[in-house]
């Protein structure tokens, strides 16, 4: 009975210990920058894979950082920051897609009619025109196919098939049951296979 209060104290200390006294006395801005600067590139890459656009990826990362700054003390206590940040980014992404769906969007293609501009036919890279067309053609096809997925499917296929998180890790990270993740992944892959032509995508 006499030991009980000590045990309790020990547990409380264990939960609180990751925040060093040094960090607690520093200005929040410095701690925040130390924590997030090494992660911004990763967040941007993930955001680009979710959104397929540099502008949208930057907006998404900016929104996440704005939300994170007031949570700097909470972040200081997190052992594995990267998956935690990926989770915040994922939720922000899904929310922003839903929010945008509520406001009218007009898609305007500025210079898609490149065949009308002879200057556009001049290849600008050192690749031969055929290699360039093939590579950028495949990239466009994948990006277009990814745009056909809903945000949850796109996120799970990115985080699992590209970033290498297992379904078990994603279950913990995203707080989504593994069965739901499995069926999202299945639908996402099925849709991508249906949308992408066997030539040139088959590995065979």
């Amino acid at each position: 009975m006499r030991e009980e209060p000590f045990r309790r104290l020990e547990r409380v200390w264990f939960l609180m210990s990751p925040v060093s006294p040094y960090r607690q006395t520093r200005p929040t801005e410095l701690n925040f920058e130390d924590l997030v600067r090494p992660q911004v590139e990763y967040l941007f890459r993930l955001a680009w894979r979710f959104t397929g656009s540099v502008a949208d990826a930057e907006d998404l990362v900016q929104d996440v950082l704005l939300k994170l700054f007031p949570r700097t003390q909470e972040m200081l206590a997190i052992q594995r920051l990267r998956p935690w940040l990926a989770r915040v980014l994922y939720h922000q992404y899904v929310d922003s897609v839903r929010q945008r769906a509520r406001s009218p969007v007009l898609q305007l293609v500025v210079d898609g009619d490149s065949e009308e501009d002879p200057l556009d036919k001049v290849p600008t890279t050192r690749e031969g025109p055929e290699e360039h067309a093939e590579r950028s053609g495949q990239r466009d096809l994948i990006l277009a196919a990814l745009r056909q997925l809903n945000p949850e499917q796109r996120a799970v296929v990115t985080m699992h098939d590209v970033e290498g998180y297992s379904l078990e890790e994603l279950e913990t990270m995203l707080g989504t049951p593994i069965g739901t993740l499995k069926s999202r992944l299945h639908r996402a892959r099925q849709r991508l296979r249906a949308l992408l032509p066997e030539e040139p995508f088959s590995a065979g």
Binding site: T28, E29, F32, E33, V36, R37, V40, E58, V61, Q62, L65, L66, L68, F69, P70
Partner: peptide, 8 residues
């Protein structure tokens, strides 16, 4: 992005 986030 970091500067804007810390300025909120």
């Amino acid at each position: 992005a970091i500067a804007r986030a810390t300025r909120q």
